[in-house]
Design a protein around this nucleic acid. Structure first.
Lengths: 247, 247
DNA sequence: AACCACCTTTGACTTAAATCAAAGTTGCTC
DNA sequence: GAGCAACTTTGATTTAAGTCAAAGGTGGTT
């Protein structure tokens, strides 16, 4: 089906020719600077579904930029329950929350076959000392994550189940769009349970509300395949324009 | 009363002799490096209660390190409602969420008379290019904020009202402690409404649960003055040891 | 292609926290 | 220090989402 046409960069394409360069660390770097960055990056073989990229407690050795596919971040709480902390798509850099004490606080697992660029953190840090654009982009990426987390916090704090799910769909839509995919037709890479866990809702609530949106004609959903028929209404429900598109 | 003995550094004390140096940017910098940092910092006169440090939409010119007092961050949602995004104490650096696009996404207002160090961002960024320890600490501070936000997200997502309030008190306690104050006896700088807003609870729920903790003998609360009598029970309620102390 | 494990949907009932309402406090201003 | 506005507490009622339960789908494996 058309939806399966995911970004599939050649396994060892350089940053220079990478499809998601404009979303990733090389943004605004000169060609020569990108070569330095290229030089420290490892491009390993794809990670298969349900395999871990890293685990909570692992020492931070590298950050990871997702080239294609999707990653779920989660922690395990005191009582052994899984707590989904994020879903990450191509162009997103993960592992940043490990910088403060040198250990990953969360697990990262592939939701589908996923390729990542491994960026050794120490080397990246050194490189950033003489590439101002890289230093700035690293700060920007981290700042953006702080901003996004705070937006999500507000969503969880103030919005009802309907709003949260609408915002979630709108967020996925706009992220697909930025990556050159259709904003109205895509596959949800996560289960209802994962989505619910992330949004602070039960699986039953997620299912009920998706069914409702479906009946109301705002979306067409069948299993993991989603078609958004009325993006504007979803945006309205989500709490207006793009305040929460950031999750 | 004893609780009023807040940190009151001399208005123009240098980083070198600042009481909260170990919590702030200068941590692990050499004396000569701290002098550079000192050179770019502005130490303005104290900010009085209810005055804004910056407003949402303001261009990012400086980050601010709190020297004494406390700051509330908040945004205004589409529907005009205030949304508290954080409370900040001495030693914390605010404004980091503005780096990604150069504009502050939130308001910052003083909850009491507060002194801050103004750190011009461009100059800080330049300084960090030749002070590796400063660059690392800046990354660490941002990473820590990402981590803290995610911890808070989990709290809001998975915990009931009792847990949230317990975690909130434990967090304040441990933050007071790190700053050299009593971990069991301090003043809540925010109103019940602000605390509730932040925790995704109504003012009535906050009040009820504080009353309950009081009756159960875990705390002694009178107005804004709090004495924690059984920190361990609070930590238990908060969801175990220090997972959520980070909020 | 049949089986099975896992995922999803739907319905009935329960519950934690919100809302509505009103009284009680606190502390600032004149 | 009296008056008042803002904050806080407490109680009664409502409601959104959770829980429990069971049926219906889906897709991967042999």
């Amino acid at each position: 089906m058309a939806l399966a046409k995911q970004i599939n960069p050649l396994p060892n394409v350089s940053c220079q020719r990478c499809a998601i360069k404009p979303l990733c660390l090389p943004v605004s770097l000169a060609e020569s600077e990108i070569e330095y960055l290229d030089g420290i990056i490892h491009r390993n073989r794809p990670l298969r579904k349900d395999n871990h990229l890293f685990r909570a407690g692992d020492p931070l050795t590298s950050l990871y930029a997702i080239r294609s596919g999707s990653i779920k971040s989660y922690t395990i709480s005191m009582d052994g329950e899984e707590q989904v902390t994020g879903f990450h798509l191509a162009g997103e850099v993960i592992g940043l929350d490990a910088v403060h004490n040198g250990n990953h606080p969360s697990f990262a697992i592939a939701l589908e076959t996923t390729t990542v660029c491994e960026i050794p953190f120490e080397q990246l840090e050194e490189l950033s000392s003489f590439i101002p654009g890289l230093r700035k982009q690293l700060l920007r990426v981290m700042s953006r994550e702080i901003y996004d987390d705070q937006s999500l916090m507000l969503l969880l704090n103030k919005r009802n189940a309907e709003s949260r799910i609408a915002a979630f769909l709108v967020s996925l839509s706009s992220r697909c769009s930025r990556r050159g995919f259709s904003p109205t037709e895509f596959k949800l890479p996560m289960t209802r349970a994962d989505a619910g866990n992330y949004l602070g809702l039960t699986i039953e609530t997620v299912s009920r509300i998706l069914s409702r949106f479906n009946k109301q004609g705002m979306i067409q959903i069948q299993g993991k395949y989603l078609k958004i028929l009325d993006l504007e209404s979803l945006q309205m429900l989500a709490g207006g324009s793009c305040d929460f598109c950031a999750i």
